[in-house]
Design a protein around this nucleic acid. Structure first.
Lengths: 336, 336
DNA sequence: CACGTTCTCTGAAACGATTCATCCCTCACT
DNA sequence: AGTGAGGGATGAATCGTTTCAGAGAACGTG
């Protein structure tokens, strides 16, 4: 019951603590007979390495931190999976933090990760990349932005071109003949939202007869989507947009629930609908949902990769920006 | 750039390291003037506490570990959220591990958590509760089973009565006049699957004219469900079941995609379909999905609660089994 | 004025694994 | 026999924080 340390193991096996440590970390340097004796002592005593002591000595932990905007969004769990797989290849553990689009929670996770002396941090940051991240990196924690990049290339990042994605979505809606488009998303402080909207604006600008209405939401959840859907449904049909571009699939599914399940507004006949992320559930929605696909697992995978390079590269590492292109997936919700 | 420790902070503020520690942990014990001086030194130097050293001294970390079967399953992310919220109230962090229904990964996470000296472990274990968990607890890490309980009451647990849930689902299918029911799920080693099937068996046994076919899957994913759906679709309609009870909603959604999106088998007319967990996407499925609801966030919340009690209680704590009752949610996929 | 209290602050001793300079043996070779 | 090389093992020092017994100073009280 009392805690077992290397010291007890050493005593039991009749060797020094240094040898026990060698058995644990460099068994090749120890004679087979000794290895066996030490291992017997370890299992007899039920010895379990103390990671805190290990880390203290090593200076850095063997894990990397990932802060996402919303764990309930399958897009981010996919990213996390990709990252976890890549991290596992390197013997690293992934610590997952959920900021829930809340700046205080984001900050709390960063503090935590920094105190833990993680190998590095992957983050899908809220709002602008602030002091907080600059300081974090300056103090020695490599940092890579996920699903987001900075204009000034001061951080490494793995992202998808959200402006292009927004453009793709809006252009598609226009191409099927819609002229009164509504963009649903928010808060605007989230860069992904702002970029997707910007892309949509660009696409609309190319067609003088097409209008774009912006409906802001408090967050990117199914619930918020349903709320917006209710409002649209309550409108006079003439005032209703004939197409909705939702900033992500969760919102789109919420809108869809409100419009379609309650029956009177038809998708896509009355209102075409497109989401963003192409989560697994989009294809199975009540009306299969058109969406903009991002290579989510690949993003996570690549981000860890880049983080490792950044960590190895030292101070003079040239920050790298990797950008993937989004892909339009057409399903029934936009005609098909 | 060089790592800043309490020692440097102390020197800069002209106090001893003990005082710095007091400022950090018990500021009330230190005179306001000193507190201010130390805090100035901390921010000047950019000092960040080393958590490893803290933990080493403390003996235990301030986090608890949660091992789930599948992070891609919204049910488990909901459980995680509930757990995280409750943990945060106590100033504890939640470490989320994903066993992916793989015994080696489960084991790796348990090792990791034990080396980290976590406050306790919540786990939705694969297969039988083995030696591994017994040893873990014996060595001093409180453990609570999630979504699962042991027959012999040797562990504390928070669960939902899966037999009752299975019974509820099958009885419902019978009540809408279905007589050839297929249970889709697997592997059977997962207790939740076995219990839900057992409940279904019991319900079917009460009706001599109703048959139950078991279709095993390798995992509980959308993909596996789609695979089963394809098979059902390929069958001669006469050989097809007239109702499917899927062991969870992911499977059900997969089955639904295969049957319904490809058009020729109608849900619920030809085949009624019910899932399990009532995840948020069930209501928005192409045919809104009937399901068995579990109070997911509450499960997580309660599990942390129980873990804390178990940790405080010491060796003589009487393990407690908490069981919630599932609830039938009827939607279009079973007639409605 | 002496004495007990209260308030601040001190600094050395843990916590447990890892590292590294060092020592002890063997063994091979001249 | 003497020398050098090299495999094996040693154990003190180290990482950074917290704790705790106790030292001083300041204050009030009889």
């Amino acid at each position: 019951m009392a805690t077992v340390s290397v010291r007890e193991v050493a005593a039991r096996a009749g060797v020094s603590v240094g040898t026990v440590s060698n058995v644990l970390n460099r068994p090749a340097k120890v004679s087979p007979a000794t290895v066996e004796r030490v291992q017997a002592a370890i299992s007899d005593l039920g010895f379990v390495r103390n990671d805190a002591a290990r880390q203290l000595r090593a200076g850095r932990s063997r894990s990397i931190g990932l802060v996402v905007l919303d764990v309930a969004n399958p897009f981010f769990t996919d990213v996390a999976r990709g990252a976890e797989d890549r991290a596992a290849e390197e013997g690293l553990t992934l610590l997952l933090g959920n900021s829930d689009e809340n700046i205080d929670r984001e900050s709390a996770y960063l503090d935590l990760f920094e105190e833990q002396r993680v190998h590095g941090v992957l983050i899908s940051p809220l709002g602008e990349v602030g002091d907080r991240l600059v300081r974090l990196r300056a103090r020695g924690t490599p940092t890579v932005l996920v699903d987001r990049q900075t204009a000034d290339h001061s951080f490494s990042s793995v992202a998808v071109d959200d402006v292009a994605g927004g453009h793709l979505a809006a252009k598609h809606l226009v191409s099927i003949g819609r002229t009164r488009i509504a963009f649903v998303g928010g808060p605007q402080g989230i860069r992904q939202v702002a970029d997707r909207l910007e892309g949509a604006r660009q696409a609309v600008r190319e067609h003088p007869n097409v209008s774009l209405e912006v409906i802001s939401t408090e967050s990117l959840s199914v619930l918020q989507g349903r709320f917006v859907g209710e409002q649209l449904r309550a409108r006079n049909p003439a005032d209703r947009p004939d197409a909705v571009f939702a900033a992500n699939d969760l919102l789109a599914i919420g809108v869809l629930q409100a419009l379609s399940m309650l029956g009177d507004v038809r998708v896509p006949e009355d209102v075409a609908l497109i989401g963003y992320d192409d989560i697994a559930f989009a294809a199975a929605a009540i009306v299969p949902l058109s969406s903009i696909r991002q290579p989510s697992a690949l993003i996570g995978h690549t981000a860890v990769d880049l983080l490792l390079r950044e960590a190895a590269g030292g101070d003079d590492f040239v920050h790298e920006q990797i950008e993937f292109q989004p892909e339009l997936i057409v399903r029934d919700s936009t005609g098909g």
